[in-house]
């Protein structure tokens, strides 16, 4: 109506419209801002431990202390099985993976609120921010993984433990992508919802804490005998990722192709829906944030 009144005789490079279709995602634009993405990633890494004495060592201290604590509480006091694996290795594997997922989720879920000041002043594809968060967390994850590999090699080479990697270990990159995808998907989904109601932010922190106990992080899936509980556990896409990792790298766990496919489809759907909603919200969130 109003649009047709204006002549279309010229080539416009930018068109700002009220409402675009749900699927109007400008990937070209995202690509054009790739430099911003790398700068955001390096900012996140550089600034995290500025003005600390130990610096990036903190990336290692956290998982080490957590592992020791788990060994005492869950391994020692509660006596939860680790499928015959050395406790340190078992917990460290779970903690590294879980930390990555949880950090991705927590950090991306506040995208809109914590960046409102920038978003309110200048436009760039908002998706750059959660993407860069997931990437900078990957660096942190990489450092922690290095620690895991050291501990792993120690157990493989110097002890006669039952650690037995197999070909499924090659699935590892895919598993990381799935973890990142799930964290990002949930994160941007929540961040889109929290622009209006902040209650969800509080709920989320709490929810992530509880979620860890619903995922085989500190116990193997094989210890679950209750059928219903097992079914519920398998609904959790993270279960399959964690189990596949432990199966491939450590040689124990419940590897299930069906579960992995389920997790992958879950991740893809969640991520697509998340991106669509995020894209929709980014256009007008400044009015409600």
């Amino acid at each position: 109506m109003a649009e047709t009144e204006c002549k279309r005789e010229q080539e416009w490079t930018t068109v700002i419209k009220p409402r675009t279709s749900l699927f109007d995602i400008d990937l070209k634009e995202l690509w054009r801002f790739r430099d911003l993405y790398t700068i955001f990633v390096s900012r996140d890494i550089k600034t995290q431990y500025k003005q600390t004495i130990l610096g990036p060592l903190w990336f290692l201290i956290q998982p080490v202390l957590t592992t020791v604590m788990y060994m005492v509480v869950f391994g020692g006091i509660a006596g939860i099985s680790t499928d015959g694996l050395p406790q340190a290795l078992f917990y460290l594997a779970g903690i590294c993976l879980w930390q990555y997922f949880a950090q991705c989720l927590n950090a991306t879920s506040s995208t809109f609120i914590s960046n409102a000041a920038i978003f309110g002043k200048v436009y760039f594809p908002r998706l750059i921010v959660p993407l860069s968060v997931v990437t900078s967390q990957l660096v942190r994850f990489g450092i922690q993984l290095f620690l895991f590999v050291c501990v792993y090699l120690y157990y493989v080479l110097f002890t006669d433990s039952s650690v037995a990697p197999n070909l499924y270990a090659l699935l590892f990159p895919l598993l990381v992508v799935m973890l990142a995808g799930l964290g990002l998907g949930f994160g941007i989904f929540f961040s889109s919802l929290t622009t209006k109601y902040r209650d969800l932010t509080l709920l989320l922190t709490f929810f992530v804490q509880l979620w860890m106990y619903g995922t085989p992080v500190i116990y193997p899936l094989s210890t679950i005998e209750n059928e219903k509980l097992l079914f519920l556990m398998q609904l959790n896409p993270l279960t399959h990722i964690f189990e596949a990792f432990k199966y491939g790298v450590l040689g124990v766990g419940t590897m299930s192709w069906g579960g992995l496919v389920y997790a992958f489809v879950f991740m893809s759907v969640l991520l697509s829906v998340g991106i669509l909603i995020f894209n929709r919200v980014q256009r007008s969130f400044m009015d409600t944030v």
């Binding site: 649009e3 080539e11 416009w12 490079t13 068109v15 700002i16 009220p18 007008s284």
Partner: peptide
Amino acid sequence: RVTSPSTGLIRAK
């Protein structure tokens, strides 16, 4: 493009 219009169209080169 910090926020989007309710109606109408803005075009720029």
